[in-house]
């Protein structure tokens, strides 16, 4: 009797663990199936929509030739450089403007005026200033990642709870200690969100900049493949962009979870 019961329990456990994997991949699987179906039906030309099978074959070819890895590496390095710069500037200026009102009054107007300009609109000038390859790309990425980081850091400081301000007054806490122990830790979730959004922007900016100019990087690979009508390669490039972007975000998310141990995330009702 006991054995039977246990067996049933084991089965449920097995099923639930299979389901937990499936529910994450079932939607992509259906999309791929529909995609393949459309291609097999002959409704669209293969050059306009290469089938998943073709794309997978192209992945094999491009990995073997090293083409994809070379271009991806170029783009990833550009993103890391630009993101690092944006991180330093965004956190630095965000903290500075958040903590010192005078600095805020001096700088905020200028920053808000520059913000609506899409980073890619700087490209023509950036190419003239910093050259067509690395310099201009890193500049565009830095610009693209800077604003979300900066604004989140500033917002994070702004939302410092008035209750903790009062508490610190009552306890006679010095300004420096207040900033270190209350303002910055309180703003940390915002800072990390800003970094995550910034990294996403950085990755989008590198592709946009490479699509427009230059002879290297994953964005260049896309335009190059398109001009040769190798649309399967274009798809491989797009998939690679998605995958790398997702990986970068996952790394930051994991870091966030490690840094902010005290907060339990809301995962929905």
């Amino acid at each position: 009797m006991e054995g039977v019961l246990n067996k049933g329990k084991n089965l449920t456990i097995k099923f639930s663990s299979i389901w937990s994997v499936w529910k994450r991949i079932i939607v992509p699987c259906i999309i791929v199936l529909i995609w393949q179906g459309i291609c097999l039906s002959g409704m669209v030309k293969a050059v306009l929509l290469p089938s998943p099978v073709q794309v997978v074959k192209a992945v094999g070819v491009m990995v073997n030739s090293g083409e994809i890895v070379t271009h991806l590496l170029v783009s990833i390095i550009r993103v890391l450089e630009g993101f690092a710069l944006a991180g330093v500037l965004g956190i630095g200026l965000g903290l500075g403007l958040g903590i010192f009102p005078l600095l805020f009054e001096l700088m905020d107007g200028t920053i808000q005026l520059l913000r609506p300009i899409p980073p890619i609109a700087w490209l023509p000038m950036a190419i003239l200033w910093f050259g067509i390859e690395e310099g201009s790309k890193v500049f565009i990425i830095t610009l693209g990642a800077f604003f979300p980081i900066f604004i989140n850091v500033l917002d994070g400081i702004r939302q410092t709870d008035q209750k903790y301000v009062e508490l610190s007054k009552v306890l006679g806490v010095s300004k420096g200690k207040f900033v270190r122990k209350v303002v910055i830790p309180g703003a940390l979730p915002f800072i990390l969100s800003g970094l995550r959004i910034g990294l996403g922007y950085a990755w989008m900016c590198v592709v946009a900049a490479e699509l427009s100019a230059g002879m290297k990087g994953i964005g260049f690979m896309l335009t190059d493949a398109r001009s040769l009508a190798q649309t399967d390669k274009v798809f491989v490039g797009m998939l690679a962009i998605g995958l790398v972007g997702k990986m970068m975000d996952s790394i930051l998310r994991a870091t966030e979870a490690r840094i902010i141990k005290w907060r339990r995330a809301f995962t929905g009702v």
């Binding site: 209750k163 007054k169 009552v170 006679g172 122990k181 907060r263």
Partner: peptide, 30 residues
């Protein structure tokens, strides 16, 4: 103004959520 010769307990505990109990106590010490 506020002073250490007057302690206050508010309606909400106002412990800093990113500090442990020990660290919250340390925060109050000069």
């Amino acid at each position: 103004g506020p002073g250490l010769e007057r302690g206050i307990v508010f309606q909400e505990h106002r412990l800093l959520p990113w500090m442990t109990v020990q660290e919250n106590m340390e925060f109050a010490l000069q």
